[in-house]
Amino acid sequence: MFKIVHAQFLAPGIKRFVLQTPRIARKQKPGQFVILRIYEEGERIPVTIESSDPARGTISIVVQSIGKTTQLLNSLQTDDAIADVVGPLGKPSEIEAFGTVVVIGGGVGTAMAYPSAAALKRAGNRVIAIVGARTKELVILEQEMRAVSDALLITTDDGSYADKGFVTDKLRQLIENGTRIDLVLAIGPIVMMKAVAEMTRKEKIRTVVSLNPIMIDGTGMCGGCRVLIDSKSQFACVDGPEFDAHKVNFEVLVQRNAMYREAEQLSLADYQRGLAEKNAASKNAARAGVPREVEQSCIIAQGGIK
């Protein structure tokens, strides 16, 4: 069991957890992830490590409610525990002095891009961060990103905060302004990463994306996480998760991530039915607190990483 030292919502449906995982805290590098399993009957899901504190023996992760497992996770609170947390997995991000690097985070991808942005800054790069979200309250880690970048550009799809538009609009502006860009790191929804890749391919700007296929073991044993890179199968958990964006076959990634949609929806419906029953029961018992958190965790159930 791994203790949740601290848990707090950053935005509706997006929660940060600080976990007691001394071994992982000592070894984590930007770009790596953990695989966790909440309880005995649970599935194993991968989540990027946002930061680690080797002295305290903790790591932090940021989780967006998507389906059953992430909703269940986001209903957990400080002092709860998670059955299994294993890592750090995957290759660390390549951190070098590239020159000017544009780091793009879409939605919860911002939390996944943050540790790499910070490391790239420490390595002496000029970091331009672009953060995109659907709406104002889903903009996360604004302060943190600002602290590690030379410029921070924010967009919201609905224009409720900062500039209306997509992260690619900002990237296009940078390119059109003649900004010299040596590397783009883009992490977020697949459609976003694909759009970024198309744009930078024409400009011949080196671009790295972090892929999020379905995983089980995370050690290269099952082959379930295979992605098509330059028409060859690679295992995202050991060969990635970061890959050259211009070699990724995004269609195959989208297609494979949809493999269990029916079962996932069934699982989610079951879970929410159970919650509703519990909620009703606890309202009767006039217990406050818990259900509110749970409600929050469900708000953007269907919105996340597609």
């Binding site: 599935e43 059953k68 089980i216 073991d217 069934l266 699982s267």
Partner: peptide, 25 residues
């Protein structure tokens, strides 16, 4: 891969879905 197929069944108990969360086709 046989590893994934068997891991889903044996380790993750996907054949007991939805009692267990791991799905399989």
């Amino acid at each position: 891969s046989a590893n994934e197929f068997l891991t889903r069944i044996n380790l993750m108990k996907a054949y007991k879905f939805p009692q267990y969360d791991e799905p399989m086709l």
